[in-house]
């Protein structure tokens, strides 16, 4: 009996000892530590190329944008490949609350003033695999007047776009986004669009591929479902390169749309890639 007791005694001690030596402190922490990790933003700046991205200014961040589209490359030497007839947009973006940004801008294309709001719905995290963002913009066309349109009413100057932006950062290098879009255009110039479509539905898609930590190739395309066959406008395809240098992002791009606003580039892209009728341009983003 004594022997057996001794054996049990020794076994228990050994058992305890093993327990103790296995007790790696760091391993113990690994099992305790938990953290809902949000994915890094899918895009570097607020636009992929022309299309809005899911990126939103952080609270109290102030962004200044200059978006420039030269005239059509097709014009050749006459305009020095589009140096004349350029479109410039100046835009201010500010965030008063976390996850919501407001913007005011003015672009020379149709002398458009616009205001927009973009807000975060869900952020991609270890819990949920997508970024969901809402975007709404209202534009006033200040160019048109009674000489051009004798029956012009103030409401004709307005156009609106509403988008749901759905993006995912698939990997370190690759992000993709879909953008179901509803457009309201109060003015329909029947010489250009053939048939009036005040309400339009479109689907945008865009992505980025990072070549290095600070350089990426971006592209976006929007298909407009509500366009008449005789409409002179095309679906916009834009391809660009993003270069980030700390507080600045430079986007150098080609697009068949000269406007940089929604619905400007979505509904009224005048250029055509197949005819070389495209616009060279850049966006410069500075954060303060």
């Amino acid at each position: 009996m004594i022997k057996i007791k001794n054996i049990i005694f020794i076994l228990t001690m050994v058992g305890n000892f093993i327990c103790f030596s296995q007790d790696d402190l760091l391993a113990e922490l690994e099992s305790e530590a938990e953290y809902t990790s949000y994915e890094l933003p899918a895009f570097k700046t607020m636009t992929i190329v022309n299309l809005q991205s899911t990126k939103i200014a952080a609270k109290k961040e102030f962004y200044f944008f200059v978006s420039h589209r030269f005239g059509s490359v097709k014009d050749g030497f006459e305009t020095l490949f589009g140096l004349d007839n350029a479109n410039t947009k100046i835009q201010f973006v500010y965030s008063f609350f976390e996850g919501v940004q407001f913007s005011l801008s003015r672009e020379s294309w149709r002398q458009t003033y616009s205001g927009s709001v973009k807000y975060n719905i869900v952020k991609q995290s270890s819990e949920f695999g997508l970024n969901l963002v809402g975007f709404h913009i209202a534009n006033i066309n200040a160019e048109i007047n009674e000489d051009l349109f004798p029956e012009l009413e103030t409401s004709d100057r307005w156009s609106f776009a509403h988008q749901l932006l759905i993006s995912r950062r698939f990997s370190e290098k690759f992000s993709f986004q879909l953008a179901p879009t509803y457009i309201r255009e109060n003015l329909q110039d029947l010489r250009a669009v053939a048939e009036a479509n005040y309400n339009q539905f479109a689907l945008g898609g865009g992505g980025r591929f990072k070549l290095s930590k600070r350089i990426s190739i971006n592209a976006d395309y929007v298909y407009n479902f509500s366009r008449d066959g005789n409409n002179i406008y095309n679906n916009p395809l834009s391809i660009g390169v993003d270069i980030e240098t700390g507080g600045h992002v430079f986007q150098i791009l080609f697009s068949n749309a000269q406007s940089t606003n929604e619905p400007g580039f979505i509904s009224n892209a005048g250029g055509d890639w197949s005819e070389g009728d495209i616009f060279f341009g850049f966006n410069i983003v500075r954060v303060f």
């Binding site: 760091l26 990790s37 609270k59």
Partner: peptide, 29 residues
């Protein structure tokens, strides 16, 4: 003693700096 922290849980005053810290310097993913 042992300790562990998540790099992404570092809070910067400037959000963009935090993004660059994680993405360009620390490879937090």
């Amino acid at each position: 003693i042992a300790s562990l922290l998540f790099i992404k849980a570092f809070n910067f005053r400037v959000a963009l700096m935090q993004e660059h810290f994680n993405e360009n310097y620390m490879d937090s993913n």
